[in-house]
């Protein structure tokens, strides 16, 4: 199996399974993570996510990281059940590294997309049973073609290319409309926004999602709680520090009416 550099196959040979179709008991509400977005800007692609994880109407955690780095040039943002999503990210991270180290070349961008589809397909029983539905957005920089790319998936593993932007999670209907409006009738299309403007838009979008969706956490300045924003360019993935987001939020997002 080493010949093919397929890490998931290696795990399976050792008895590993990703999703099990355990049906959901009546008393249990699974934890969910919500509202992620990705759009292309001038230098690459921006991926952002709020930080709230909920179980039913209870807030489980307010510092969740839903935008996860898989390698130097790709990021997976997750909406859905975090337990499954984190596991998938772990599998992917190891798969890409294993491929690179055994085959002595990087897995192609298309190869990476396929790997995610395969994982989601394996996870279908759990997704349908309600214990492990994950709806990811995958964004990365394709070094061979020199361009940023965004893909989103449904829970069955179908892959769709988000040409300019993609959203997922319970807060996404709100911001999908805004993204469409901004991209079509805004001052300039999203893919021409400079880095700082792109970050401001991401903060405004997540704040809007939190306004209309209780499962989305907004910005909490008292607790210095800001969304996770990552920028992917040809140089790699870069996490925007809170210290950068704070002044942007205060000067360009908050309105004292």
């Amino acid at each position: 199996m080493g010949m093919q550099g397929d890490f998931l196959q290696l795990l399976k040979e050792q008895g590993y399974t990703l999703g099990t179709a355990a049906s959901l008991g009546n008393s249990h509400t699974p934890t969910n993570a919500t509202t992620i977005l990705a759009f292309k800007y001038r230098d690459g692609v921006l991926v952002a996510g709020d930080r709230r994880a909920t179980a039913g109407n209870m807030v489980m955690y307010d510092r969740t990281d839903k935008v996860l780095e898989i390698d130097r040039h790709s990021v997976m943002a997750i909406a859905g059940v975090p337990a499954t999503a984190y596991e998938m990210v772990r599998v992917l991270e190891h798969s890409f590294k294993y491929y690179r180290r055994t085959q002595l070349q990087e897995l192609s961008f298309d190869g990476k997309l396929r790997a995610i589809s395969k994982l989601l397909k394996d996870n279908v029983p759990a997704a349908l049973a309600g214990t492990g539905a994950v709806v990811p957005v995958f964004a990365g920089y394709d070094l061979e073609q020199g361009s940023a790319k965004i893909y989103f998936y449904d829970i069955l593993g179908a892959e769709f290319e988000g040409v300019e932007y993609a959203v997922s999670g319970s807060g996404s209907p709100t911001i999908r409309g805004i993204l469409h409006y901004l991209n079509t009738w805004g001052d300039q299309p999203l893919n021409r926004l400079p880095e700082e403007q792109a970050m401001v838009q991401a903060l405004r979008l997540l704040t809007s999602a939190a306004e209309f969706d209780s499962a989305t956490g907004g910005v909490n300045r008292e607790a210095s709680l800001y969304p996770v924003i990552k920028l992917i360019t040809g140089a790699g993935v870069q996490t925007v520090p809170d210290a950068t987001l704070k002044p942007l939020y205060e000067s360009q997002v908050v309105r004292y009416v």
């Binding site: 290696l10 795990l11 190891h94 294993y98 055994t102």
Partner: peptide, 13 residues
């Protein structure tokens, strides 16, 4: 090399 890679990645995962 392959057995080292296999052992390392399975253990790391």
């Amino acid at each position: 090399r392959f057995s080292l890679l296999e052992m390392a990645h399975v253990e790391g995962f």
